[in-house]
């Protein structure tokens, strides 16, 4: 199962009335892979991600996540995935510890599990002293790292990260990516959207969405070679300029 496919999409499409937000996208993600999902604003990244998370039903096409069908088993999928959105998503008015207890609780984890895991994460993030501090008073970088730890608290097979490092300084971003690598080493598949092209280089494979379609999908090195570009930034610009749809 080390190289099994955990996410597969086949001509996955989402329409809102006349507007085709996601237009027949097909791709596969392997277990433990860090899969970058790139695209300009309004290219359809978030919509595609929401379909894979079971938050929204596709209009047509097929997709399985963790071996489960997104139409029939969208409630079951939720058990095997973690999710962190671009909006900061912990409870500001709960303490660090309470947040972890809460998320452990909504994933039906045992008290024993929650206790051990909380201690482990506090240790890992060096947050033991802040365990009983309100999340509101933590610096943004710490909050993001905590949010990521909470997203994989229940040890999901796949974690979806929607622009997880928005507004975070480069040092913290580096640390954040170290956490992503650690998770990947543990066998957690990471599906991440980002606007930072240097981050795209950290991914095992990258797909670039333009106007709801996947225009390119390969390893960063291969993409640069194919497009004769020196950096991912250049690759992205070459592709994104083709867009006819206005960014929102």
């Amino acid at each position: 199962m080390s190289n099994g496919i955990v996410i597969s999409a086949n001509k996955l499409t989402k329409r809102f009335g006349d507007f085709v937000a996601v237009d027949h996208i097909s791709f596969e993600v392997n277990k433990g892979e860090i899969f970058g999902f790139l695209g300009a604003n309004g290219a359809g990244k978030t919509t595609a991600m929401r379909m894979l998370c079971g938050l929204s039903l596709p209009t047509s096409g097929l997709a399985t996540v963790a071996g489960l069908d997104v139409y029939k088993d969208n409630e079951k999928i939720k058990k095997s995935i973690g999710y962190m959105s671009q909006k900061f998503s912990l409870y500001d008015d709960l303490t660090v510890k309470e947040n972890m207890q809460f998320y452990g609780g909504i994933y039906h984890k045992s008290n024993e599990f929650i206790k051990n895991k909380t201690a482990f994460i506090l240790d890992q993030l060096h947050l033991q002293k802040e365990a009983n501090v309100l999340v509101r008073s933590l610096p943004l970088g710490w909050k993001q790292k905590l949010a990521f730890s909470v997203a994989i608290f229940h040890e999901p097979e796949i974690v979806f990260l929607d622009e997880p490092t928005g507004g975070v300084d480069p040092v913290t971003r580096r640390e954040f990516w170290n956490m992503i690598y650690q998770a990947s080493e543990l066998g957690i598949t990471v599906f991440v959207t980002t606007h930072y092209m240097d981050e795209a280089e950290y991914c095992n494979r990258v797909s670039i969405m333009v106007d709801g379609r996947i225009e390119a999908l390969d390893t960063p090195a291969q993409l640069k070679k194919n497009y004769g570009a020196a950096s991912m930034d250049e690759v992205f610009l070459k592709l994104a300029r083709k867009a006819v749809r206005a960014a929102d």
């Binding site: 998370c53 079971g54 938050l55 409630e75 939720k78 058990k79 995935i81 999710y83 962190m84 959105s85 909006k87 900061f88 998503s89 912990l90 409870y91 500001d92 998320y103 909504i106 994933y107 039906h108 979806f160």
Partner: peptide, 14 residues
């Protein structure tokens, strides 16, 4: 507004 609703909706909670 906080974004926590989305997190709860992707969790197995109905």
């Amino acid at each position: 507004e906080m974004g926590t609703m989305e997190i709860i909706l992707v969790s197995p909670m109905r």
